[in-house]
Each structure stands twice: as structure tokens, then as C-alpha cells.
Amino acid sequence: MSTDLTSPPATRVIGGRTSLGITWPAWGWSLIGVLAVWALIIIARPGTPFEPIAQALSLAPFLVLVALGQMLVITLGPGNIDVSVGTIISMASYVSVAVGASAGPLAGVVAAAGAGAVAALCSVLAILLLRVPPIIATLATSLIVSSATLLLADASRNAADASLRVFVNAKVLGIPVIAIVVLAITVVIALMLKRTRFGLSVVAVGQSARAAERAGIRVWAITALAYIASGTFAGLTGGLLAAFISPSTVLGTSYMLDSIAVVVIGGTLISGGRAVPAGAWTGALFFVLLSGLLNLVGWSIGAQNILKGVLVVAVVIVSATAAGTGRSSLARLRESFTSRTIKKEKNNG
């Protein structure tokens, strides 16, 4: 038995350092993807080069908002994932419209975000008290939320408030106001992850929940906050989407996988411990531009789904190799204790 230790599991490289000393950002690849898709769109429909970007900027912010929440959850470490965001968005769209009709659009959006937080609280209780794995807890929550959506859909026949419609469609110098607002939120989250106790704790828990606990971080509180943040952002997105599109029971369905894909494509580690807020933007723009391109070329919904799925799998494979991350926290932990051997080529079996 050889005893040489290889690849210490705790160390991580953020980005990759080139020989010139310039750090290649984790969201760099997705930016290249954005530019490539943009170029393809221009080739497919020459004439108005900035129109596709302007269009993408009005749709992408919603995806960015959901992805930021999803990013916080995924950063918590392996196994942490929020699959309830899709149904929360659908539910929140009805909440926003229903409350907005009686108490004004602002109250409606706040209520939508609150509804998202309440739904997330349900997941949190299941995760922390019942010790249900997050994926089951959030799946169960999404079932409960989808029932709530159906009940709300039966009860309300309202349309979104006119002033909210004006707000989500407003543009300053050709840039949608909503994009500016979401950009501000992204900056706040980026600073929070770098500077504040909560942000650093999220990253620390993702790198090693055990070490974080030893260091005095209340892991349960951080976990709860991250999920509630994710639910709140999904609720907020639903509240705004109600005015941008219109409330519907399937409004948020596509956001579930899209948000995870955006987070992964944006350079956030799927195994946790590294959050890349800027990547939410490049990832979301890539996705929105890509579906614009596919619609332009005339691909069916089925084909778009296939491409999306293949892309997610491909990006995960590539990024996992690049970062050299483990399969799951338990597996990584186990490997760090037991596997002291270099992977030997074995042919018998």
C-alpha cells in the first residue's frame, strides 16, 4: 500500500492563474459563451447587433435573481439544492397580483417575496428538524406550493397592477430599469459574500461544514438563512414576473433547472464552497440569448430541452474536472480519510 497523499481535498483554486499573472475569472467561460451566441444571432439575423442584447437584458434579470438565491444554497455544499424555486415563482405571481389588487403593487411584490420566504421556511424546517435531505425537502415543499398555486389560481382572476407593469417594462437609456435593480442586488450579494459574516460563513460551510462548526459558525442558522434567501428571491421574481408576463401555474416551471444551470455555467462550484455572483449574469445572459437563438433558428421546445440538458451535463463534467471536486461531501470526507492511494489502473473485475 503506498502512502503518498495526493490532491488534498480542502484546497481550492479560484479561477486559474496564467503565466502572465492575470487571474482567469470563474465566469470567463460563460462570458465567451455569451459572446459566441451573440455573434451567432448577428450572423443569423444581421442588421441590429444590439437588439438581441437589449432584449436579453429585459428577460435575464429575472433569471439572475432566482440564480442568486440558488447560488447561495448550492454554495452551502454537496446535497444542497433548492428545487422548489420553480413552483414558488408560480405561486408568488398569484400572491403578487392578489395582494397588489387590494393593497397596491409594492405591497403585492413584498407579499410575493414573503410567500417565497414562508415556503422556504417549510423546506428549512424539514431539513433541520426532520433531517430530510434538502432535495427531498424542497421537492416536498414544491408539491405543497403547487397545491397552493392551484388554489390561488382558482380564487383570483386579477391582472397585474398597471404601475407595476410600467416599472418592469421601464427603460433608462435603453437599459431596462429591472436590470439595473437586479445588478445592484448582485453587487450587494457579491460584497456580502466577500465582506460580511453571513457571506463568509456560507462559503465556509460549503468548504467544510465540520470545520465551520468547529470554528464557531452556527451551521444550522446559515443553512436556514441561505434557503430562506433563495425562497425570497424566487418569490420576488414571481411577484415581478406577474407584471412582466402574467400569473400562470406554469410560470416558474422552467426556472428550476435554468437556475441550477445558470449557477453551474456561471462558475459557482456545484460541490459548494465557491460562489460567483457575476457568473449569474453571464450564465443567465447565455441562457436567454441561447433560447432566443434557438427560437430564431426554429428549434422545437423538445430540441431546446435536449440541448439545455446536454449543456448542463457537459458544463458540470468540464467544471468538475477543472476544479477537481468530489462527488459528495460524504464521499470526499471518506476519501480524505481512506483513499491514500493514487488511482491505480485496474483491469480485473
Partner: peptide, 13 residues
């Protein structure tokens, strides 16, 4: 790679 993400991606395929 985490099986959760791979199979989730495949579900869309």
C-alpha cells in the same frame, strides 16, 4: 461529478 446534477440535466434530455 454529482449524480444529482447529471441526472437532473438528463431529465431534460
Amino acid at each position: 461529478v454529482p449524480s444529482i446534477i447529471v441526472t437532473l440535466g438528463m431529465s431534460f434530455v
